[in-house]
Amino acid sequence: MVATMEKHIFTVTKNAALAPNVYEMQLEGPGCAARVPGQFVNIALDGLYLRRPISVCNYDGRTLTLLYKVVGQGTRQMAALGPGRTLELLTQLGNGFSLDVPGRHMLLVGGGIGTAPLYWLARELKARGREVSVVLGFNTAAEIFYTEAFRPHSDRVLVATMDGTAGTRGFVTDAISRQGLSFDYFYACGPTPMLRAVSQALSQPGQLSLEARMGCGFGICMGCSLPMADGTSKRVCKEGPVFRKEELAW
């Protein structure tokens, strides 16, 4: 996937809490935010030296949607931005998901805030006539978000919660096996332990979107370079963040 980074000022049009500490922000700007689902933007914030990488949750050529969880200074600053405020973004970063995969039935697995990049992916897959199943994992019912948003773009949405307050009790992998879902290919994004568990539990081929602490986000610092199964290394920000299951060293 050849993508060229661009730098743009985007204006916040909406910013609202979806669940405790999880926000949905919508922005509009003069340039392209992303070419394919799974890409990310890198956001400059006041008083913070490094930008903050956030996945593109949805982009329709005009409105950019981000989902983010408040975990520190930068995301706290984002949560306080009302409509009309501006953010400087580096856009079209990373490779994004490859939609050109074999099979009919696609399984999308998200853990917590890792749900974000799967939304646009579901839309695109559904629009291409694939069967789309979505499995989302959360800690507890009160933390659930976006399950309704997925419904129009998927054939089924399953939920797993760690405490069993909604859906299947346990991990996303428990929900998948309990439901006996048969699928041809999977896409996953979420915390690293979840991604490991998913890639070990599922025998089907798939793609996983990873995170790394980033210096630049566009390939020049080698700060995010990850060892691969074949002995090479790849930059999460440039050759990633999406990798095929067999590329990963786990």
């Binding site: 030296y49 210096g215 995010c224 370079s225 290394s233």
Partner: peptide, 10 residues
Amino acid sequence: YGNPLPRIAE
């Protein structure tokens, strides 16, 4: 290859 990740802090 260099050092293990994470390799960046602020």
